[in-house]
Amino acid sequence: MSLTEQISQLESDLQELGSLLGKAERKRVQDLLKEEQKKVEKELTAKRLQQEQQARREAEPSSASKAAYTVKITSYAWDQSDKFVKIYLNLKEVQKIPSENVEVNFTERSFSVLVKDLDGKNHQMTVLNLLHPISVQDSYKKIKTDMMLVMCKKQTTKKWECLTSVEKQAKEKDKPNMDENADPSDGLMSMLKKIYEDGDDEMKRTINKAWSESQEKKLRGQEMMDF
């Protein structure tokens, strides 16, 4: 019997009890009818409340539709021991969502993270081309307060220079030219130029101030300031 049918039956019972109560003449019978009437009224109120809650749940969007879009996790930190590479992801209140909402998939040279319906969004991260192979079956995740930890088990016990081959290439690309035949001042200027371009406003102001002071000293016949 559906909830609507149950409510209809209780309403009919209540109506009939009221009719009987109006015809009853003896006090004992009246008291019995009134007591039964209160029980039915209480049950009817509970069923109506249950019906309202059910209607409200059906009207609300599901968890999947609430998480309307996916954002990429681009900020992370990593550390390592001889046996594991550890990736730290800052995800506020991640410990409050169901554990099945946090998925991590491993391959020998990659891993991917998907956190579903956290703060109304899905959070995703994929790292490809790991520097060395990892053990898929021995890698795992940990959920902590406002943080998630991805534990990649190394197949070989040794230190990694960096997390991925992509990061290694990026580091090599960013290294200043160390040609032994080049003018040392050229290398210094190239390094300063890169620091200036990559730095924030405070770093740029500091470099500009130092450069201005060095030029003033040069004009006064002093040696250029050693950067």
Rank of each mutant, 00 (worst) to 15 (best):
S190Y: 05
L149S: 02
K154R: 10
E172S: 10
H132P: 00
S135D: 12
E167V: 00
Y88L: 10
G199Y: 13
T74P: 05
Q95V: 06
V127P: 00
D186I: 09
A67Q: 04
K173Q: 12
D146N: 15
K142A: 05
V150C: 05
K83T: 13
Y76T: 01
Q137L: 10
T164P: 05
K121R: 12
E103F: 02
K173E: 11
F84D: 09
T74I: 06
K159I: 07
I87K: 05
N181R: 14
E58W: 05
P98L: 10
D82A: 14
V166M: 02
Y69N: 10
V115I: 07
R56V: 09
K175W: 11
V115M: 02
D186K: 15
V127C: 01
I97M: 12
V71F: 13
D79H: 09
E58Y: 09
A182M: 14
S135H: 07
P184W: 07
L163S: 09
I195K: 13
D179V: 03
E167C: 08
N129C: 00
I97F: 11
R56M: 13
Q80F: 07
Q95M: 07
V113S: 04
E161D: 12
D119A: 12
K86D: 05
E167H: 10
K173R: 15
I73P: 04
V85Y: 02
T74L: 13
E100F: 12
P133G: 00
P98Y: 09
P176K: 10
V102C: 09
P61A: 08
S135E: 07
K72Q: 11
L118Y: 04
K193P: 00
H132K: 13
T74A: 13
R109T: 03
Q54G: 11
R109M: 01
F106Q: 03
Q169S: 13
E60Y: 08
T164F: 08
S190T: 02
W160I: 03
D79S: 13
E197S: 06
K154G: 07
